[in-house]
Amino acid sequence: MAKVELVVNGRAVKGEAEDRTLLVHFLRENLGLTGTHVGCDTSQCGACVVHVDGRAVKSCTMLAVQASGAEVTTIEGIALNGELHPVQAAFREHHGLQCGFCTPGMIMSSVDMIRRHPEGLDEATVRAELEGNICRCTGYHNIVQAVLDASEKMGKGAVKAA
């Protein structure tokens, strides 16, 4: 067993895990943070996306011991002062979810995408960047609209496609 020390959603946590325990399993099983979903275990679907030191990471590709010492934010931790994060609110407003299984990963990927594109986003960029997140229900149109709306509301602007 290896010691794992993280800051998760602003709270310092300590635990033990086998060396081969994936971060997604540590979050779900050791910390009870079940909003991060296990969809494929092969990094294909994106349901397990969390932020590690501010960057989107597929937590099924990272060992818990690799994340030790890092700051991890899960879907449970992105709300702002008890209010939905602007991306969460946009997903709700634009009906960017159906069954909800992919939604936490989509939202976490979208928050990171908006952060990395301070100049704003266009539809082609959003679609290209969400290729690593699979949704089997919505057809992506409402998800893309939600991300564009959130980007605009967060002051990142929306840019027209060239």
Rank of each mutant, 00 (worst) to 15 (best):
A64V: 13
V52P: 09
S59N: 07
V57T: 12
D41Q: 01
V50S: 07
K58L: 00
G46R: 06
G32L: 11
G35A: 05
G32N: 07
G46L: 01
N30C: 08
M62F: 12
C45P: 13
M62I: 15
T42F: 13
K58I: 11
D53G: 06
D53W: 04
N30Y: 10
D53S: 03
Q44Y: 14
D41G: 02
R55P: 08
N30W: 10
V38F: 04
G32I: 05
G39R: 08
V52W: 03
V49H: 14
V49Y: 03
H37V: 03
D41A: 01
C48W: 04
K58R: 11
D41M: 06
G35E: 04
T61Q: 10
A64K: 15
R55I: 09
V50D: 05
V38S: 07
M62H: 12
S59T: 03
Q44R: 14
A56P: 04
T42M: 15
V49D: 07
G39C: 04
M62D: 10
Q44T: 15
A47C: 09
L33N: 03
K58T: 02
A47Q: 12
A56G: 00
V50G: 01
V38I: 09
V52Q: 03
T61H: 04
L31G: 02
A47E: 05
Q44I: 15
A47V: 04
A56H: 04
D41S: 07
G46D: 13
M62A: 09
V50A: 05
T36A: 08
G32D: 06
A56L: 10
V57Y: 11
A47G: 09
G39H: 07
S43G: 07
G39L: 00
G35H: 01
T36M: 04
L33C: 08
M62L: 15
G46E: 02
C48V: 00
Q44N: 14
C40S: 03
G54R: 13
T42I: 11
H51Y: 11
V57A: 08
G39N: 04
L31S: 00
K58V: 03
S59C: 02
V50R: 11
A64N: 13
V49W: 11
R55V: 09
V49E: 06
V50M: 02
G54M: 12
L31E: 07
G35L: 02
V52C: 06
C45S: 08
C48A: 06
H37E: 13
G54D: 10
H37M: 05
G32Y: 12
T34I: 06
N30R: 14
L31R: 01
T61C: 09
G54Y: 15
G32E: 07
A47P: 04
D53N: 13
G46F: 08
K58S: 01
S43M: 11
V38P: 10
G46C: 05
D41L: 01
V38Y: 12
Q44D: 14
H37D: 03
L63M: 15
D41Y: 08
Q44C: 09
H37T: 01
S43C: 09
N30M: 01
V57M: 08
T36F: 09
S43D: 03
C60G: 01
R55D: 14
G54N: 01
L63K: 14
G46K: 10
M62G: 08
C45L: 12
S59P: 00
V52M: 05
C45I: 15
S59F: 00
T34D: 04
H51K: 13
